[in-house]
Design a protein around this nucleic acid. Sequence first.
DNA 1: TCACGGCCTGTCCACTGGTCCAATGGAGCC
DNA 2: GGCTCCATTGGACCAGTGGACAGGCCGTGA
Lengths: 204, 204
Amino acid sequence: MTRHYFLTPEAHLLPRWQAAFADALPISVLPKADTADAVLWISTRLPEWRATLAQGGAGEHVRIVVISDSPTQAEGLEALEAGARGYCHALSTPAMLREVAVVVLHGGFWVGPELMARAIRATTARQSVIADMTDPVLERLTERERAVALAVARGLTNKEAAATLDITERTVKAHLSAIFEKLAVRDRMQLALKLSPYGELATS
Amino acid sequence: MTRHYFLTPEAHLLPRWQAAFADALPISVLPKADTADAVLWISTRLPEWRATLAQGGAGEHVRIVVISDSPTQAEGLEALEAGARGYCHALSTPAMLREVAVVVLHGGFWVGPELMARAIRATTARQSVIADMTDPVLERLTERERAVALAVARGLTNKEAAATLDITERTVKAHLSAIFEKLAVRDRMQLALKLSPYGELATS
DNA sequence: TCACGGCCTGTCCACTGGTCCAATGGAGCC
DNA sequence: GGCTCCATTGGACCAGTGGACAGGCCGTGA
């Protein structure tokens, strides 16, 4: 049988929680290790909910759902990052709570679609930059200049860039002059700042 | 009743798909609008799976799960970004497929834990940095050093930093030496790279 | 063939960046 | 009063940077 623990500062159940799960248990501290499947509902009204979440989710068969009186995207992300499998409104209807329980007990994640969209977007935005070599800034440079620009923006000195590209330090300077001219920057620092979104790219 | 459509190039079912859902239907083109709940399983062996996913997921009561013969995180992110509610291995066991179906039909997302972790990490990394003013890196510096560090990381020359902070260029150098020492970086470029997450902060 | 552009290299020079050594004044602590 | 930490500045010195000017090699296209 699946147990539903509700961890709140007041250690009592809201009527709708009881309506959702007949066997709901109000608690004020983490329950003992439970062999059976269980859902641990943690309220964000608990000041130390983050810490509790972090320790409670460690290698257990317990699914944790964070419930908030006023859900925000930032808070949701925190909850998920800390190991929660779900994040929802504390005043969700009993039917909704049961949905959430079904999802997390079956290995899924329950988050708002907007939150999910945001999480995904942030992830892909990062790598799309990496994948996208034909940027307006970099495409103005020749292939060799691009290599020099990335090396320098990575923090290498002229000598080091020369070594990695197997050319003379003088040549690096020549390319740099062209780069500064084309990108309208005065020095390597401004170049690095202009190319900062490509930081991950340059490092790899 | 829940319908399960399997969209593949060959338009035939694998045995395990049939084992998972008695009413599974093999298709080669998008089905007509379905009023009932339905799960649309799209195989990545379909060359145009991205496009199909994008148009198929538009405002329907159909949950889309992308199945891949060789799942990767990048592909998973693409799928989720394009509107899929789940992403899993095409050769998952029937029991697993049923789990996935339960989750997505109840409004959840089914993604690998690693994938989820990555998505979350990418999102929170950016903003936690901005929100967190007392970072281990910057808090190792004195107040004055911090100001110099941010100015320099912003791309200012020593002379300019001196002017904005209303001190001598010589003093800027002194602070910089201390900064390089404390943060264990060799020059202003490395400093800028180390502080690059603070770019937004420094500019403002 | 000649012109043009990308790529590579060289020398000379002025400026910038970074370090070493050294010093002063102020704030806080035992 | 000593003592420590911080901010400030100075001089000297050398490595790193960037510009000016000049040349060579090679491929494409008029």
